[in-house]
């Protein structure tokens, strides 16, 4: 009874709360990192060094007036931010934060569940998130958001193909679809998979940037383009929900990249006993550190690179990333057969 219902419920609550707090503080982190890159300080007034800034932002957005355009489709207008946020959150059900640990005398696995099609589950719920963007633009009943949402969704479904092909080569390398077993296969192979598949890593990262609508692929939502993109007509908490969903997607992509390429919860050189002093840092802390490295690279890229034009973006996706991903699958297959 406790094992089947109470413990997973507690885990779900914990992961949800941690994600939402993390997403809120990503806003602050992004502003700080971009500010430091641009040789300024970022938010400094609210709280010591601006630490309470996300709380001020949240209060402001909650208290803003909730405007719905007159001829907009009410239900769809309300549902669109929810449809973007929910897939980002439910992905965390299969992400392994650590192995089975001993907690209060019980063997508790540090992941909510281990589905035997975990990686494919993540890809499929990510493809549901596209609906929120299309419907957000459509329900606003105005030209600019509609065009921007069609562009954004075309970008998302194009890069989804490239990311899925890359994940196919990772599945071939790991030999399984289950996220926990992928980490275990990295333990058995004595190598993080980033050294086995560097091309797949670069492809996954670029595809992840495009999938989460982050710079340099953020044409669909940048303020200078199409008067603010698909969330032009949204105000207050709904706008906040779109943005939080974007940051949640960023955390999801970083977590998946950590699990697939950087060995998940394994410490560096997990099989060398001489380095076992690194075991002082618990496994989930290693996971969080690696995810944080990816998040930092996301922010760094945003601060550094200029934005892609839409046709350049589509050309990159279809003519460069997809052929390279397919070639990667073929080469992986050949190498696996020969060796």
């Amino acid at each position: 009874m406790i094992d089947t219902y109470l413990i997973p419920l507690l885990k779900i609550l914990f992961v949800l709360n941690a994600t939402l707090v993390g997403v809120t503080y990503m806003v602050l982190l992004e502003r700080k990192v971009i500010a430091w890159v641009q040789v300024r300080l970022g938010p400094m007034r609210v709280g010591p060094y601006g630490v309470l800034q996300p709380i001020a932002d949240a209060v402001k957005l909650i208290l803003k007036e909730d405007i719905t355009p007159t001829r907009a489709d009410k239900w769809v207008f309300t549902a669109a931010p929810i449809i973007v946020m929910v897939p980002a959150l439910i992905t965390f059900a299969v992400i392994p934060f650590g192995p089975v640990v001993n907690l209060f005398g019980r063997q508790v696995p540090l992941y909510i569940t281990d589905v035997n099609v975990g990686l494919l589950y993540i890809v499929s719920v990510a493809s549901i998130g596209v609906y929120g963007i299309i419907l957000g633009g459509w329900a606003s009943n105005s030209k600019f958001p509609l065009l921007a949402s069609l562009r954004a969704s075309a970008q998302l479904i194009s890069y989804e193909v490239a990311v899925t092909m890359t994940l196919v080569s990772m599945i071939m390398t790991a030999g399984t679809l289950s996220m926990v077993k992928i980490v275990e296969s990295q333990y058995n192979a004595h190598l993080w998979f980033i050294f086995v598949q560097p091309v797949a890593f670069v492809l996954f990262f670029i595809g992840g940037l495009a999938e989460t609508n982050r710079a340099p692929f953020d044409m669909a939502e940048a303020e200078q383009e199409l008067t603010g993109g698909f969330h032009t007509e949204y105000s207050g908490m709904r706008f906040a929900l779109f943005f939080l969903a974007e940051y949640a997607n960023m955390i999801v992509v970083s977590s998946v990249a950590t699990t697939l390429f950087l060995g998940g919860w394994l410490r560096p050189f997990p099989n060398i006993a001489a380095l076992s002093f690194l075991g002082i840092i618990p496994s989930w802390m290693w996971f969080l550190l690696k995810t944080f490295v990816f998040l930092y690279i996301f922010l760094w890229v945003r601060a550094t690179l200029p934005r892609y034009r839409y046709d350049q973006l589509m050309r990159l996706g279809w003519k460069v990333l997809i052929p390279v991903a397919i070639a990667n699958v073929v080469v992986t297959g050949i190498v696996m057969v020969l060796f």
Binding site: S124, V125, I128
Partner: peptide, 25 residues
């Protein structure tokens, strides 16, 4: 049939119906 379930979501709900939605718009 777990594999079919995720294929149903990925291909049918997340691909074919997106195509329908585009054409409707």
């Amino acid at each position: 049939a777990q594999f079919l379930a995720v294929i149903q979501v990925l291909v049918y709900a997340g691909g074919i119906v997106v195509l329908y939605l585009f054409v409707v718009m």
